[in-house]
Amino acid sequence: MEVAISIITGLMIIGALYAIHAKDLLSAVIACGIVGYGLVICFLLLKAPDLAIVQIVVETITLIIMVAVVLDSSREERYLKPDPQGYMSIVTAVLLIVVLFYFFRLAAASLDVFGNSTLRMADAYLERATDRTGSANLVTGVVFDFRGYDTLGEATVLVTAVLGILTILRIKGKK
């Protein structure tokens, strides 16, 4: 199981590298789709069918929006001469990556071995969720019962994002 997920994650890394370095913006957007659909396969292998259903539709809608925006404007990434600020940002990125690498190496010591999760809340949810919520799908039980506040906040964020988009894109005033 670990080998299969490692191979797919490697493919996702290659797709991400190509998406960042491609000259044509349309192929960059489609290479971003490689990463998203690879994630769907990872979710299926990790036994998360709920997430796979959501991710495959969300990725398609995101691709539609991005391709529409790119086709509506310029496709070429304009090449300008590298300036001191560009070199500065590359140095910043490399320094940040080195620092994050060091801290992740420290944090990885406290992670569980893959496939051997020992989170404390898991047992409590798995034992009592079906009795307390009456729901056969444990993810739905956690989302709407134990973690109801999270879901309410998420719905609020969604409404706020829609209001923001309507405010940004409105040209003519509504009569």
Binding site: I53, V54, V57, V58, S135, N137
Partner: peptide, 14 residues
């Protein structure tokens, strides 16, 4: 949504 994989989020997006 409370019996099979899916639920409000997945069905809404579909």
């Amino acid at each position: 949504g409370h019996l099979t994989p899916g639920g409000g989020f997945a069905g809404g997006v579909v």
